Amino acid sequence: DYYQTLGLARGASDEEIKRAYRRQALRYHPDKNKEPGAEEKFKEIAEAYDVLSDPRKREIFD
């Protein structure tokens, strides 16, 4: 679930989605986080943001 990936509730505003993405992206960015799995988590976060930030894709997902 993309909302869960970003730590959001369904119905989150565009601003909340953007804030959550930035927070998670900084936390799991491969240059900042060298833990195994961080790069994969970063890709999941980017995919979630891509879907939720686009109104058309978000409507299909919801």
Rank of each mutant, 00 (worst) to 15 (best):
I60M: 11
K57N: 05
D54T: 12
R58S: 02
S53C: 14
G11V: 06
S13I: 04
D31N: 13
A38M: 07
E39C: 12
L52G: 01
A20K: 02
E44H: 13
Y2M: 08
R10N: 11
S13R: 09
G11H: 10
K18W: 09
A9K: 13
E59R: 04
Q4T: 13
R22K: 13
A46F: 04
L52E: 01
P30H: 05
K34E: 15
N33G: 13
N33W: 11
K18H: 14
A25C: 06
A12E: 03
D1M: 08
D14W: 10
A12W: 00
R22C: 07
Q24R: 07
Y49H: 13
Y21W: 09
D54A: 06
Y2R: 03
A38L: 09
R58D: 01
K41I: 06
P55S: 10
S13Q: 10
R23G: 10
L8T: 07
K41T: 07
R56V: 12
E35S: 11
G37T: 04
R10E: 10
K34S: 07
A38V: 13
K34F: 02
S13M: 06
L26E: 15
E59N: 02
G37W: 08
E15G: 09
I17W: 00
R58Y: 02
D14S: 11
R27G: 12
L26M: 07
G37Y: 08
Q24P: 01
E35K: 10
D14L: 14
E39Y: 08
A12Y: 00
A38N: 09
I60K: 13
L6W: 00
G11Y: 04
L8R: 00
R58L: 02
E35V: 13
A12S: 11
A12R: 00
E15W: 06
Q24K: 13
D54V: 05
D1P: 01
E40H: 11
Y49A: 06
R23C: 15
I17E: 00
Q24C: 14
A46D: 11
A9W: 04
K34D: 06
T5N: 05
A12G: 02
E44D: 12
D31S: 15
G37H: 10
I17P: 00
E35G: 12
P36D: 05
V51R: 06
E40P: 08
G7R: 06
D14Y: 11
R58H: 03
E39H: 13
I60W: 06
A46K: 15
D31G: 13
V51D: 03
E16P: 00
S13E: 07
D1E: 08
D14N: 11
E44K: 03
R10W: 03
V51C: 15
E16N: 06
E15D: 14
L52Y: 00
Q24Y: 12
R56H: 09
K32S: 03
A9T: 06
A46C: 14
G37I: 13
P55T: 09
I60E: 15
R56C: 10
P55M: 09
E40S: 13
N33R: 10
Q24H: 09
Y21R: 04
L52H: 01
A38D: 13
D54N: 12
K34Y: 06
E47V: 11
Q4I: 09
L26I: 15
A9H: 08
G7I: 01
E39S: 13
P30L: 11
R27Y: 15
P55H: 08
E15K: 07
A38S: 09
Y3V: 00
A38R: 08
E15N: 12
Y28V: 07
S13L: 05
D50Q: 06
Y21D: 02
I60R: 14
S13H: 06
R23I: 15
P36T: 15
Y2F: 03
A9M: 10
Y28Q: 08
A12V: 10
E15Q: 07
D62W: 04
L6S: 01
N33M: 14
K41N: 07
K43T: 03
F42L: 07
G7D: 10
L26H: 13
D14K: 05
L8S: 04
I45P: 02
E59H: 04
S53D: 02
S13W: 00
L6N: 02
E44W: 03
A46I: 05
P30R: 12
E16Q: 15
A9E: 06
Q4L: 12
L8D: 01
G37N: 08
K57A: 09
P55E: 09
D50Y: 04
V51W: 08
I60P: 15
E35L: 11
D54S: 11
A48N: 02
K18G: 09
H29W: 09
A48C: 01
Y28N: 05
D14H: 08
Y28L: 09
D1R: 09
L52S: 02
I45Q: 03
E16F: 00
Q24D: 14
E40Q: 15
E40K: 15
D54R: 03
L26P: 03
Y2K: 03
E59K: 08
G37R: 12
E15M: 08
Y3D: 01
Y21Q: 02
P55K: 14
P55R: 11
R23E: 13
G7Q: 12
Y49E: 03
K41P: 01
D1Y: 06
E39F: 09
E39D: 15
P36S: 12
D31V: 13
R27N: 14
Y3P: 02
P36M: 15
L52W: 00
G37M: 10
K18I: 15
E59C: 04
I45E: 01
L6Q: 02
H29T: 12
P55L: 09
P30E: 11
Y28C: 11
H29N: 14
E44G: 12
A20L: 00
S13P: 10
R56N: 12
R58W: 00
F42V: 05
L8A: 09
Q4S: 05
A46L: 01
K57V: 01
R27D: 12
I60F: 07
E15S: 11
G7L: 07
P30G: 14
K18N: 10
E59P: 10
D50R: 10
S53G: 13
P36V: 13
E39L: 15
K57R: 13
A20S: 09
I17L: 09
A46R: 14
Y3Q: 01
D62R: 09
Y49M: 12
Y2L: 05
Q4R: 08
S53M: 09
K18S: 11
E44A: 14
G7K: 11
H29E: 14
R10K: 11
D31L: 12
S53K: 12
E35M: 12
P36F: 12
P55Y: 07
E39R: 14
A46Y: 06
E40R: 15
E16V: 03
R22F: 07
D31Q: 15
A25R: 14
R22S: 14
K41W: 05
K32D: 08
R23L: 15
Y21V: 02
R58V: 03
V51P: 01
Y28E: 05
Y28W: 08
A48W: 00
Q24M: 12
L52I: 04
Y28F: 04
L6R: 00
K43P: 00
L6A: 00
E47L: 13
K43I: 10
L26T: 10
D31R: 06
P55I: 06
S53V: 12
E16R: 03
E47T: 11
A46G: 08
I17N: 00
I60H: 05
Y28R: 04
G11E: 08
N33Y: 08
N33Q: 11
R10Y: 06
S13Y: 01
N33K: 10
N33E: 08
F42Y: 08
G11L: 06
Y2T: 01
A20H: 05
D62T: 07
K32M: 02
Y28G: 05
K57F: 00
L26Y: 13
Y3S: 01
F42Q: 07
E40I: 15
E47N: 05
A38F: 10
E16T: 04
Y3F: 09
R27V: 13
K57C: 01
Y2C: 09
P55W: 07
D62V: 06
E59L: 05
P30Y: 06
G7W: 01
P36H: 15
T5S: 09
E16W: 00
D1I: 02
Y28D: 06
I60N: 13
S53I: 08
L8P: 01
E35I: 13
Y2I: 03
L52A: 02
G37C: 10
R22D: 09
E15A: 12
Q4P: 02
Q24T: 06
Y49Q: 05
V51K: 01
L8Y: 00
Y28H: 03
E47W: 04
K32R: 14
H29A: 09
R23Q: 13
R58C: 05
F61Y: 14
D50N: 14
R58T: 02
